[in-house]
Amino acid sequence: MALHFVRSPVVSSARALTARVIGFVLALGLGALVLGIAGFDSLHLGRQIIVKSLGSQFGLEDLGLLYTPLLLTGLAVTVMARMGLWNIGADGQFYLGAFVTTAIGLFIKGPEPFMLVLMFFAGAAGGALWILVPTLAKAYAKVDEIITTLLLNFVALLLVYYVATGPWRDRVSGTTASTGRVPYKMPDFFGSLHWGFVIALAAPILFALALRYTKWGYEVRLSGANPDAAHYAGIPVRRRLITIMLLSGAIAGIAGMLEVAGTVHRLQGGISNNYGYLGVMVAVLARGSALGVIAGAFLMALILNAGIILQTQGLTTSAVLALTGLIMLFTAIADQFAHYRLVRPRAATA
């Protein structure tokens, strides 16, 4: 009798992790094989990645600067995933956070600590504002949030391009497609790594604690797990949905604020660096766990950093993108495979 697969709905975390490690290794192996055939020394490239990203202060700083926004956008997507919703618009909310931060930084004068606090909250408000329409459409008209949040990304991108090349363009140093320098900056604590990193690292922990140790967190968990049961328990599900979506937007907005005030110091067209979309990948890697975001974002930062290093070794951007995609694909496959085990069916009992 033929073997067949049996799906079990629940997967232990050990099993899930094992499947992922196998998937990751297979993806790397396949990538190395293809690079090898193309004439690259795969082992050498691998060693370069490890040495250059983890073996020096510069490498670690770069890694940290990539890690910071990914933590926040990954958290933004995860926060909404707890309600069973997808925020595909973290990129747009990131842009809006960056936009509002830059506006305040360029046009308002004040003492630096005060200005940083103001920019922080304004960035959060910008992100929340950008998801406000999708939120209301979802809460009151059941409009699919995936479409609305996604489409607003392009609006945000065009808005930023417009101000960066038009009214706010840099007239001092003549940098193209960029605004002038924002004079207020997040303080550094490790080379070029700024305190925004600490904020970004604290955010998933705070959210995890809030989910577990507040009434609001319980209501969100129940509403996300089963909205009908939450309604039955007397929870105002719609209000929780609205706060969660706005919170998600605000977190992505803060990522944009930190990118301007901590890393780039000006607003430019490509400032989001796709962090919003990568946040979706981080959330998938984190499997809906706020603390999982810390690990998922780290892996994602490592992959991004490896991509930059590989480019210096002569690989094209497309090759790097393909490698990233390969890892994601294998992770997704591994997640599914973890559900299945191979079974030899019992002989039919007579």
Binding site: T214, Y218, E219, R221, N226, Y232
Partner: peptide
């Protein structure tokens, strides 16, 4: 019930909002 949540969370669905489980905003 919410099948995916722990037994504990399901058992307190009707009492989570009052003492001793809730203290102000905390759970």
């Amino acid at each position: 019930i919410a099948p995916s949540l722990p037994i504990s969370d399901n058992a307190v669905m009707r009492a989570y909002g009052e003492a001793p489980i809730a203290h102000g905003i905390f759970f």
